[in-house]
Computed example of a mutant assay.
Amino acid sequence: MLKSFSDKAIMTKALSMYGKRITNEQYMELMHKKTVAEIAAYLRDTAGYSEALSGVQPTAIHRGQLEILLRKERFSRYLRLMHYDNAQRDSYYHYLIMEIEIEQILQMIQLLNSNRAEEYITQYPAFLERSTRVNLMELAKVRSYDGLLHVLGDTPYGKLLLQCRPLGGELIDYTKCEVVLMSYYYQHVEDIIDHSFHGKTRLHLHEIFQTHLELLNISNIYRLKKYFPETKPEQIAKCILPVWKRIPQKELDRLIAAPSAEEFLKDIAASPYAKFVGSDDFTYIEYTANCINYYMCRRYLRFATDAPTVFTAYMALCRIELNNITTIIEGVRYGVPPSEIKKMLIL
C-alpha cells in the first residue's frame, strides 16, 4: 500500500511540474531577448524557474552562473520527486545520480587534456556534494590522471578507468574513457530494470534507454564518417556503446563498414532508420535524433500508467528543456538571429 502511494505521488508530482514547463511561446520570447541578463529576468518570472532564480540580480549574473542555477533547478526537481520514493539506496531512480557523476568525471578528463583542470572549481555543481559517491571538492583538486584515479578510489569508476590510464606523456584517450564509463552506466541501468520491473514497465523503460542509445550510436557513426573519413571500421566499432537488443549485429556491422558518409546515408535510407535521412548535414541527423527522443518521452509522460516510466520521461524532458535554454543563452550572447536559434531547439 505504501509503495502504491509512493508511485501515485511521484506520477502526480511529475505531471504537475511538467505543467510548468517552458512553452513554445515563451521560447519565442526568450529568443528575442538582447542579453543574458534579460533572459535571467524573464526566467525568474516563469513558474518553473521562479524559485531557483528568486534571489538573483539579473544585471549581476553571468552566463556560467545562470547555467549552473538552471542545472541546479533540474536536480531540485529530481529531489522533489525522490521525496516520495520509499525504496532503498539501490532504488532504480538513482540512475540519474550515476549519470551526473559520469558527466563530472568526463568533464574533468576534458579539462586535464587541455591543461585547464583548475577551471573545474569555477563550474562544478556544489549542490550535488551530498548526493554523489564522488567527492566533487576533491575532484576539483585533481591535476593528473593518477590524481583522478586516487579521488575515484574504490568506486566502480576508478576501477573502470584504470584500463584507460595513459602511458608516458600521452593525452588521455577521452573516447575510450567515455565508452568504458557509459557502457557501464547503460549495462547497470539495464540490469536494474530487468531486476526491478516486469511487464509494460520493463518494456517501456527499455525502450526509452535503448532508443536513446540507438540514436546516439547512429549519430556517432555518421559524425566519424563525415568529419574523420580516415577512421577505420574497427576504430569506429570501439567508439560506439553496447546496443543490447535493438540493432541486429549484422545491421550494425553494415553501417560501420560503409565506405563513406554518403554511403552510410544510403544504407540508413534502406533500413528501418530511414527517418534519419533527409539531408546530408550531420546537424540534421543529430537534431532528428533529439526530436525522436523528445516525442517518445512526451508520449510516455502523457500515457504511461507507472511511476518509473513517468519519472524517466519527465527527467529526460527536463534535460531537453535545459539544453534548449542553454542554446538560447549562447545564441543571444553571440548575436545569433532568433530565426537561426529556433532551428536548433527541440520543440
Results as ranks from 00 to 15, higher is better:
217 N>V: 03
168 G>W: 12
322 L>V: 12
158 G>N: 08
93 Y>M: 09
141 K>I: 13
216 L>Y: 09
147 G>I: 00
244 W>R: 15
52 A>T: 13
174 Y>P: 00
10 I>D: 00
154 D>T: 05
1 M>A: 14
66 L>C: 03
216 L>V: 04
9 A>D: 08
76 S>K: 06
335 G>H: 08
104 Q>L: 08
32 H>Q: 14
277 V>R: 07
239 C>V: 01
299 R>S: 11
50 S>V: 14
232 K>D: 11
10 I>S: 00
17 M>Q: 12
29 E>R: 13
44 R>H: 13
9 A>F: 05
179 V>L: 02
287 Y>A: 05
248 P>N: 11
235 Q>A: 09
144 S>K: 15
337 P>C: 01
293 N>L: 02
66 L>M: 06
171 L>V: 11
14 A>M: 13
22 I>V: 14
305 T>A: 11
63 R>V: 02
129 E>A: 13
317 L>W: 12
227 Y>L: 07
303 F>S: 00
346 I>M: 02
318 C>P: 08
326 T>D: 10
247 I>C: 05
159 K>C: 10
143 R>I: 09
344 M>A: 13
101 E>A: 12
291 C>K: 04
10 I>E: 01
116 R>T: 14
246 R>M: 03
40 A>E: 05
61 I>E: 07
129 E>F: 07
79 L>M: 15
340 E>Q: 06
67 E>Q: 15
165 R>Q: 13
333 R>C: 00
118 E>W: 12
214 E>V: 02
285 I>S: 03
165 R>V: 11
121 I>Y: 15
176 K>M: 02
201 T>E: 06
316 A>K: 10
37 A>E: 04
127 F>Y: 14
176 K>E: 01
331 G>C: 05
124 Y>T: 00
248 P>E: 15
14 A>E: 11
